[in-house]
Design a protein around this nucleic acid. Sequence first.
DNA 1: AGCATACTTCGATCGCCCTCGAACCAATCT
DNA 2: AGATTGGTTCGAGGGCGATCGAAGTATGCT
Lengths: 227, 227
Amino acid sequence: MKEGPDIAQVAALIGDPARANMLTALMSGKALTVSELAEEAGVTIQTASSHLSKLDSGGLLRPRKQGRHKYFALAGEDVAQVLEGLMGLAAGSGHLRTRTGPKDAKLRQARVCYNHLAGDMGIQMFDSLIARTHLSFEGEDLRLTDSGAAFAYDLGIDVGALQSARTPLCRECLDWSERRSHLAGSLGRAFLSRFEELSWAKTDRKTRIVTFSRSGAEAFHQLFPVN
Amino acid sequence: MKEGPDIAQVAALIGDPARANMLTALMSGKALTVSELAEEAGVTIQTASSHLSKLDSGGLLRPRKQGRHKYFALAGEDVAQVLEGLMGLAAGSGHLRTRTGPKDAKLRQARVCYNHLAGDMGIQMFDSLIARTHLSFEGEDLRLTDSGAAFAYDLGIDVGALQSARTPLCRECLDWSERRSHLAGSLGRAFLSRFEELSWAKTDRKTRIVTFSRSGAEAFHQLFPVN
DNA sequence: AGCATACTTCGATCGCCCTCGAACCAATCT
DNA sequence: AGATTGGTTCGAGGGCGATCGAAGTATGCT
């Protein structure tokens, strides 16, 4: 009767509104404390604590104690990816809650997905990198080519340091707003943080919106041309 | 508070054990009737009906009336992909229910994922097609090259007919057992059904296991060499 | 027409789990 | 040490939804 792993438990974990809110909040990639997540979900701290321990024992979160604070983050990119997939289903088929407010438009243009850039601009970056063969597919894996490494180095990214980490360097992740892929992995993370360092963009961790300055956007479009 | 689509509803839909069982049953790609799904989930027909109508209005299923039967199938590949993702999470992090029975081993080797071949052999096929550039990545999309079209034609697949359909020809889908991608889309479907036509393999729709005959496996490995 | 089958709808029951108040640990600050 | 803040545990309450029996609708068979 039950072939394959037990979907229901994990899905039920995500299926509670309070927990879902916490998880989407954590899609910002930032680690949040219990009280922050409680606030985010609109519940008291006790219930939040209960929920978080469940999510943790379900393997969806990675907790980290720091003094008298306890920070929670998503367990990994795979979790983030599933959440994005669910958002896609909810957006497409579900109740079509096309929250077409201004906030939504900005979200679709540029937002942070776990720790990297998503939305229109994320896709543009990805496509541009592929088109200029700075990235290439090797089998089903994504690989940074030599020209790509040079490109990243020019931007001020220490590729060597990234490669040593155990998280994959490049990974594709697909959007819920667009139906296309953007760049995830430690390189994706590095790009976004570099944009922030150069003050091309600023990400509001609360709304997940990434806002580019006028000059930042200009530089971005020049660096990642559409064709 | 709620940015992005409403994850919780969809996840809660999948989160019920009965519904999850139905959905995993539908991962076989076959359309099933209400009574079959009730049996599969271990509930009465009434409750099954209730569940199915919820799944339907949630956009996860595509119903089709045929006489006095009502067949349900997954709404699309995207749904199947999310389900596979959830299986991955449940298998990896969760309770590690490594059901290492013989059934499980066969599932990992070759199984049907919605309508195409998954598991070890699915991945082998995908890798082989990529390595010989019968498939190539174009941006983030998968494209069938000319040599690939010829290859498929030689196997007796009418690529032209597939291309006219509105479902994408090639698409990658990732496994829960391996962490890699295999070929989905109408071409993936065509390959599997061709294997069955040639009686290389036979898929048990109940267990989702694809069993290759001795000669079929031989032909498969010759056609899709590892290197 | 009459019966059987496939499914849906209604109503009632029941159990799970979400929620919060209150008390209880733990760590930092003065 | 006492106070304050962050988090966990316990217990009780309460609501939502899963479940099934029974009646209702539709389709097909003879």
